[in-house]
Design a protein around this nucleic acid. Structure first.
Lengths: 344, 344
DNA sequence: TGTTAGCACTCGAATTAAATGAGTGCTAAT
DNA sequence: ATTAGCACTCATTTAATTCGAGTGCTAACA
């Protein structure tokens, strides 16, 4: 058996209705709801087919039907197809302003959560592929150096370095010049171990002392991209949806939001296969994070200038309003765009 | 009517029992529970008195009694009195190590939440009163300077400064010397407006250009102490306690934990009146944060070296195990102490 | 052949009723 | 002052009942 146009329409009607109410939807409801005028009996027949095909399911006999993950998936896919071209116009976000990145991201997450009444997450742009703009090593006191590294997009990293032996001003100056001329302008992916080894050698007599310093600098540049920074907001919104609000589930979801690292696999996956113009949908078990297996996630990839990419995500019940969420994500992009224009 | 020794003992028994079970406790239970052998009838009489005095209350007629906020308060106060001298030995925590402050704080919160099965919060030490260790202004490109400020305790702040006109190396060097000699070693509270004004004047011909720079530096030092940094962990633990786990309440509490700023009034209050050797207890409505009015909070003040003080807090149900929590807080202090010793 | 009306049937949810029992307040005896 | 005893209260539990939305199936119809 194949799914035809009419079955598709009925499926859509079921999904839409279920999104609204959260209740299983029966044949009578649909027979009134849709434009194709069919009696409840016909709908019932079609529904039986849809169930056999695995698009909908009955929580129990003599209840209405609810969409299965597969049903949601079909719905989302067709909807996305309709929206695809609009999505394309998602502007790039350039934020080379002084505004502190983290404050901005937090705000974005908050706005998004408020707009949608779902939970929102946003990952800081991974510095992967970003260029080193500025390195400076300074002496704080006899045994402490501080390394300040700034990459494009105005992200700053600091690293405190402990040294055994006192380094005089001249050595530090020399090191600074060496670091900047060697590493400046390079993207982080271009800084590999071979280069670091060469740098150590260049350091000459001080090699053994300085080795630690360079290690630390490399660490400051590379470091932490293991640990994606993730901001979240609106966790409380899950309580709006009874199907997520029972203790067991809520506890897991809340925990995921607090231990944000648990979301990193989601971010990574999104960044890896960001086709479909950056918007992706994970329904239920499709999500790589098992704690939110009862939720759906809609993610968008954003890009700040030179290949700095991050992820914005909306996490809500499976019956989330996918259309609205996609629109919200787009809307947000525009808003950020405007914000950028104003500051320019 | 006055509360006498026996009433006190009965109250204690009621509180203890309620902490364990979370259920209203009846007269029969107490008559078996306590060492003073009294019949349930006598207990009932005493309970009627305690209720009249406002220390306990009945959720409904013919239910057992539960402690009122006032009852908890009395219980906690007497318990604290017994523990007071032990608390005194709470060691200072010095963390002049390379470990990044925020990572450390997050870890501490996590440990604490796991240990206690309550939710934990910790505020980053307020830089108030801390000494500036190191200031450096560097040019990143034609119109961008970066200010790096490090204060004792290895807290680093960065600030990007936009300048209209190009500043040559010499000017920057001059500024650096000026900033360090003027501000270095001063505590933040010692840096006042008058001093900033004088600095601006000293800047001489560049005054108008440089004014912005100094403002930004001052801002980087002062800034953000408005916005206390707060870390939390273990929010999910509230689901362990049915009296907090209903949607309405859980939603509010979770929100408070996510929007950590809502906890700042709590931190501020704790820091202000940190008598009682740094440990304070807020029961129910006593808390300055209304969203957690159904919880109790136990806070401890910690001090990192020169007057850098922060707050650690445990947030749980009113029937939290106050004794254990106080012990945990002390235990944590010791653990941190050891950690420090090892790294020394 | 596809659509529809009709009907018996199912089964979760809501409603009601009854039973339970922990706990109280009061009184009278110790 | 303490306690045993007893009648009373009332949330909670359990069971029985009703209710109704929704189904599947069959037979009639276009």
């Amino acid at each position: 058996m194949e799914i035809d146009a009419r079955k598709m329409k009925i499926l859509q009607a079921i999904v839409r209705n279920y999104l609204e109410t959260g209740e299983p939807v029966g044949s009578r409801t649909i027979s009134k709801y849709t434009d194709l005028n069919l009696s409840s009996a016909t709908i019932r027949n079609e529904m039986a087919d849809l169930e056999e095909l695995g698009y909908i399911l009955q929580p129990h006999t003599s209840a209405g039907r609810i969409p299965s993950d597969k049903g949601y998936r079909l719905y989302v896919d067709t909807m996305m197809a309709e929206k695809e071209q609009e999505v394309k116009e998602m502007k790039e976000l350039l934020l080379e302003k002084e505004e502190k990145m983290d404050a901005m991201l937090k705000r974005v997450a908050k706005v998004l959560a408020n707009d949608t009444n779902y939970a929102a997450m946003i990952s800081a742009p991974a510095v992967q592929g970003n260029k080193v703009k500025f390195i400076q090593l300074s002496r704080v006191d006899k045994h402490q150096l501080i390394a300040v590294i700034m990459v494009e997009g105005n992200i700053i990293k600091n690293n405190i370095i402990h040294v055994e032996d006192y380094l005089d001003d001249e050595t530090i100056l020399k090191l600074n010049i060496m670091l900047n001329s060697s590493l400046g302008g390079l993207s982080i992916s271009e800084i590999n171990l071979a280069m670091i080894a060469r740098l150590k050698q260049q350091a000459g007599v001080h090699e053994d002392i300085i080795s630690g310093v360079i290690d630390a600098v490399a660490d400051a540049i590379k470091g932490e991209d293991e640990e994606l920074e993730i901001y979240t907001s609106g966790a409380k919104n899950i309580f709006r949806y009874p199907e997520l609000a029972d203790n067991q589930k809520a506890s897991e979801i809340i925990d995921t939001f607090e231990e944000k690292q648990m979301l990193s696999s989601l971010v990574k996956e999104t960044l890896t296969n960001s086709d479909s113009h950056g918007i992706q949908v994970y329904i239920g078990e499709e999500s790589p994070v098992s704690a939110i297996r009862d939720c759906s996630v809609v993610t968008a990839t954003y890009e700040l200038g030179e290949g700095m990419r991050g992820t914005i995500g909306i996490i809500g019940p499976k019956r989330m309003d996918y259309e609205k969420v996609v629109d919200s994500l787009k809307g947000l992009m525009h808003q950020l765009d405007n914000l950028y224009d104003k500051k320019e």
